Amino acid sequence: MDHQPAPHYLGTRLRHLLDLLETDVARVYADLGLPDFRPRYTPVIRLVHTTGPRTIRDLADTIGVTHSAISQTVNQMRRDGLVELHPGHDARHRIVHLTDRARALIPTLDAEWTATTAAAHDLDNDLPHPLSTLVDAALRALAAKPLRDRIHEHL
């Protein structure tokens, strides 16, 4: 008997889905000889590589994550020898630059990115509604009306 979790455990199921996706991408990096490489590094490296050094704020805005999240990622990347931080036009701004080590990974990361994009399209085709479309729609809906507001309407 196939047991389906209750639909009201949405947050738990979304975290599980994200964990499945991230774990498999991390395994691909390990398969490519990069066992300690974190999937969240790739958007930073690709963006800085294609557009040049960027501030942490600009990276956060462009990638679509919080300043805190990208700051933590960049600090871990610095510890891993993938980026250097240079001062910006004032003390509050830090500019992210790639190291030679990160630049050496670009061909591998580009191949992985292309393959992962194709695999995501395959996944979308296997679903009744494309996951990428649903995620984008959910983000837009929550930007227009946060879940907190929706919850308060039902309290």
Rank of each mutant, 00 (worst) to 15 (best):
A119M: 08
A6H: 15
L82D: 07
L59P: 03
T66F: 01
A102D: 07
D126W: 07
M77V: 09
H154I: 06
H154K: 13
Y29A: 14
D36R: 14
A104L: 12
A138C: 00
K145I: 04
R148Y: 02
A26W: 01
D31K: 12
L139E: 00
R15Y: 06
H97F: 06
L98P: 11
R101T: 14
V83F: 02
T62F: 08
L10M: 07
H8A: 13
L47D: 04
V96E: 05
L32K: 02
Q4K: 15
D100V: 00
L142F: 00
G88T: 12
I56G: 05
H67T: 00
H154C: 04
M77I: 08
D100M: 00
L14D: 06
R148H: 05
A137Q: 14
P87E: 11
L139I: 02
T66A: 02
R140M: 09
I95G: 05
L82Y: 13
D90K: 09
A111I: 01
R101I: 05
L34F: 04
L10R: 01
Q72H: 10
R13C: 08
A141R: 01
D2R: 09
D110C: 10
T23K: 00
L123T: 11
H16Q: 15
H89S: 15
A137V: 09
A138K: 02
R46G: 14
R101G: 01
P43V: 07
A115L: 11
P130Y: 01
H86Y: 10
A30W: 08
H67C: 00
R54C: 12
G88E: 09
D122E: 04
I63S: 03
G88I: 10
D24N: 08
L127G: 00
A141C: 00
H129C: 04
S68H: 03
S132Q: 14
R78M: 11
T12P: 12
R46I: 13
F37V: 13
P146C: 03
T116N: 13
L18V: 01
V25A: 10
L34S: 07
Y9W: 12
D61N: 10
P39K: 07
H154D: 01
H93M: 04
Q72G: 08
A138S: 02
H3Y: 05
I70C: 00
T62D: 06
H3K: 04
A30I: 10
L18C: 02
H93I: 08
R54H: 12
L20E: 13
I151A: 00
S68N: 07
T114Q: 15
A104G: 10
A60S: 04
L155G: 13
V65C: 04
L127R: 01
I63V: 09
P39D: 03
